[in-house]
């Protein structure tokens, strides 16, 4: 016999919404929930990025904890008793959606976002009543769209400050660090140094920030222009996976095509070559097949 002992994986038992679950040690609450089909809303969480747990829509109630805990990053402890749908959890999730909805333009956010807002009964307008304050209208993050290059645009009126773009530009993928969070509090924004235009910044146009943006604040210029022209129509689009035509690394490209025209390019997060990330050539260098 030639048996190779499997590495011993400790498991822990936790209770989620009254159900007992056994998961490997170190599993996050969100993944433990997943094993029994409990879906957790997220915004700043993405499987190919380090959890920053800033949006707080994934919070759950853990017995013995004074405050709610973020499911996306907290590993389970043995015997943990978790409630994912308690009154406190529902209240916090609802309020987080309302807070964002009252200050950020969510018109191009992932469809998931709108569904979750409805699910939790969020009514953002109650937080930002118009015409009642002598201190002007309730604050929003409204600001002009930044169009400073031909490849992608930045519309920070749509930014929920999830930090994903900063992570993708920085230590989780590209290591270019062209952008960071600047300022503080409600005035915090994603910014280059001294808010300089991208062509003067360190940006190398890998577009990995676009790839992770959940709200369309970062958008291909092609998509931005088509939306402006009223021609953007996702129902007429297909997505086909193929391999980048450039260097020999072999990155998977998902070509999003509308009317036989590539309108944007992404890469699957779960592919172990790219982990969702590309370079400028793969992301934007496809125009040549359309100069017909």
């Amino acid at each position: 016999m030639n048996a190779v002992p499997l590495p011993f994986v400790r498991t822990v038992e936790v209770t989620i919404d009254g159900r007992t679950v056994r998961v490997p040690e170190g599993t996050t609450i969100i993944n433990a929930c997943k094993t029994i089909g409990i879906d957790t809303p997220t915004l700043c969480y993405l499987e190919n990025l380090t959890p920053v747990n800033v949006c707080r829509v994934c919070v759950v109630e853990v017995e013995g904890s004074r405050v709610l805990v973020p499911a996306c990053s907290r590993p389970v402890d043995p015997g943990m008793v978790i409630h994912t749908d308690s009154d406190r959890v529902r209240h916090s999730r609802k309020l987080v959606f309302e807070l964002l909805g009252s200050s950020v333009d969510l018109s191009t956010a992932e469809p998931r976002f709108k569904a979750d807002m409805e699910k939790y009964g969020a009514a953002p307008e109650r937080l930002a009543p118009s015409g009642h304050s002598d201190h002007g209208a309730p604050a929003t993050v409204q600001q002009p769209v930044k169009i400073d290059n031909d490849l992608y645009v930045r519309d920070y009126s749509k930014c929920v400050l999830c930090y994903k773009c900063v992570e993708a530009c920085g230590t989780d993928a590209q290591h270019t660090f062209a952008i960071a969070v600047a300022g503080r509090g409600f005035g915090a924004t994603i910014s280059t140094e001294f808010d300089t235009d991208l062509p003067d910044s360190a940006c190398v146009y890998c577009g990995n920030c676009i790839g992770v943006c959940p709200t369309g604040a970062l958008m291909f210029k092609t998509e931005h222009d088509m939306r402006a022209a009223g021609t953007w129509d996702e129902s007429r689009q297909t997505a086909t996976d193929t391999i980048c035509p450039y260097c020999g690394v072999g990155c998977t490209l998902s070509l999003h095509v509308q009317d036989n025209t590539i309108v944007k390019v992404t890469s699957p997060n779960d592919h172990d070559v790219t982990e969702g990330h590309l370079c400028i050539k793969g992301r934007f260098g496809w125009q040549f097949v359309q100069n017909r």
Binding site: D150, L198, K281, W286, F288
Partner: peptide
């Protein structure tokens, strides 16, 4: 970074770099 060999393909897009 933004160009490829003799540029026949990469010449098709406008790179800020």
């Amino acid at each position: 970074l933004d160009s490829f060999n003799t540029g026949v393909q990469t010449g098709g897009y406008t790179s800020p770099l």
